[in-house]
Design a protein around this nucleic acid. Structure first.
Lengths: 191, 191, 191, 191
DNA sequence: CATGAATGAGTATTCATTCAT
DNA sequence: AATGAATGAATACTCATTCAT
């Protein structure tokens, strides 16, 4: 028990996922290689195949982990029993917060999704393309609150502006309120 | 045959650029390699280094070519002598047209810009970040026509929605008018 | 369930052998790997080493099993009390039947025998090199029935033609009698 | 000229082919790897791809080289203007000589042809399956000289016995005449 | 008996770049 | 201007085997 530290086995899986995440954030998905993640964790390259069937499965695992984070984030912030307008505005605010506090998560999802031969199935998606969100938007349209266009346009506005906001805040020293951006979004999507 | 050997140089350069473009469009920037472009043009791999110092310079050259196309597109469509509101609306419409007719060009610019260690300098940019456009937006803000936020937000809205519109039209069989999208954009950016 | 755990051992051994056989038949000996056989049987890769010291021992075991099948086949078909000519002809006919009905067995023996560093000792061998058969041939030679050459030549003729016959029947839709082939063999070996 | 020994470029191709041949003879086709051949020639592994598109193309090249040797061998030994029986017997004798003097060549052809996913097209083949030879056999059958069975049986007898003869001579210190073997073959194939 | 973890060596192939000719 | 040759590093993935639990 004292000199046998072998219990951490499952931990290796986590460490590999973290290594992959780190590489994606710093150098992009294309830079993720079995060699690199293994080296970062301090194991032999071939061991990666003990924990993941494939490089694809490794990346898919990263994707699902980050996706779960996003889902938890929204679940915690949007009260499904509230009225529609409230929920729509809550979604926009949640997105704004997410884009800033979970920038890395967003980047990772974006990168894996945009891969040439992405391992991510079409159904899986970025938060902005999420089925639930799309349904929410559609409800807004049906209720006459949102403009009657394909809901994907609404999602594009929200996601695009919110990402940009976060980018300016993080990478360009921009320090302004989210309020005016929220206003832009609402003016764009609302009837 | 004997004395027109000089022309081939320029021709080969163009051919290489075209080969790179083709690969970017079909398989993404990551798939561009000196081996492939050389093979496509029918020259030895090492010859690529006669026409371009680097692979980076090749991609940069592709980038500048496409950027020039975009610039020409706007120059032809926006009357700089018209009043500000007219110019702003003309810009939005031009963007809408560009996104559809020059989808490949946009894709190429996007791809090269998004590269992990992009050869594109920060000043260079997507049309939505263009200095001229940014100035136009700033004028709109100063004139009280556009919302008083960083002009990059306005550009994000225009570019994002217009790209999405084109994507739906091209890749998802969407067949609707641009008008409602133009309305969304204007509602977002206008005071 | 509690007290019949001992049986599983033998069972797993057999299953592993069968897995190896299947791979050899479908993809050749080179395709046999501890990883694959273990996966086919549904056990951990390392468990293969519980049942077999080596990959070589696994293959050797497969070899011996198939060899035993062949031996049983001949024992059942050749009456050792019959006169020499009868036994020789019975051997040829048995070989003809074996090649067709036990094609897989022959293939497996052949494949393992032909391995670059075959685990099969020189004494062990294909049926055509079998000690018993060789002795039978020698008797034929001594009795003046077969041509006075190394008995291995006689075995080569029998085995080669019979394998070819089976190959044409199985893989090339050939549908002819064995009789003319038996005649070819006899003409070749008989004085 | 004195210190520039770079002229030997084409020679490298030959050296690589020879390295592949050597490995096939000593350890079988399966043992051929780009790493090994490159090391044997003293170049970087990646250089193999300068001379051959593929490992398959390397092996195919080896195959064609050896095949050409065999063809030349037969062309030099069989007088196509001689009468049929003479040509048939000449073929058998040529085969006997070939099997002994070109043992390695036969082994190489055999090994490459027997590969799990052989790069050799079905039309290409071992000398014993050669179109020309098959035609010769067919002529013999039509002329009533050879037994009226599929010509591949005749070829099997010739090739099989001749290979065995050579094997005994080379690997088992057998030192007998070819004459009795020739007689066995003839008795088998002739009417 | 069974397993998961580990490893090092091996596989074919692609790449950007350099250089002498 | 053009090329063929060369290289070293990188890629994902498989393998036989060992060992502590």
């Amino acid at each position: 028990m004292i000199n046998n530290m072998k219990k951490k086995d499952t931990h290796k899986t986590e460490q590999l996922l973290q290594a992959a995440r780190d590489i994606i954030i710093s150098d992009g998905v294309a830079a993720v290689s079995t060699t690199k993640v293994a080296k970062m964790v301090g194991i032999a390259q071939s061991n990666v195949y003990i924990y993941f069937k494939n490089k694809d499965e490794l990346l898919l695992s990263v994707f699902h982990h980050e996706q779960a984070r996003v889902k938890a984030f929204f679940d915690a912030r949007i009260d499904q029993t509230a009225d529609l307008t409230t929920r729509l505005k809550a979604y926009i605010d949640a997105m704004g917060e997410l884009a800033v506090t979970e920038w890395d998560t967003m980047t990772i999802l974006e990168q894996i999704k945009a891969m040439p031969h992405t391992p991510v199935a079409a159904e899986d998606a970025l938060p902005s393309d999420d089925q639930t969100v799309q349904a929410l938007m559609q409800d807004g349209i049906d209720a006459g609150i949102l403009k009657p266009v394909d809901p994907r346009f609404h999602m594009t506005v929200v996601f695009g502006l919110v990402r940009r906001y976060s980018d300016l805040v993080r990478n360009h020293g921009y320090s302004a309120e989210f309020a005016p951006i929220r206003a832009m979004i609402w003016d764009a999507v609302a009837v």
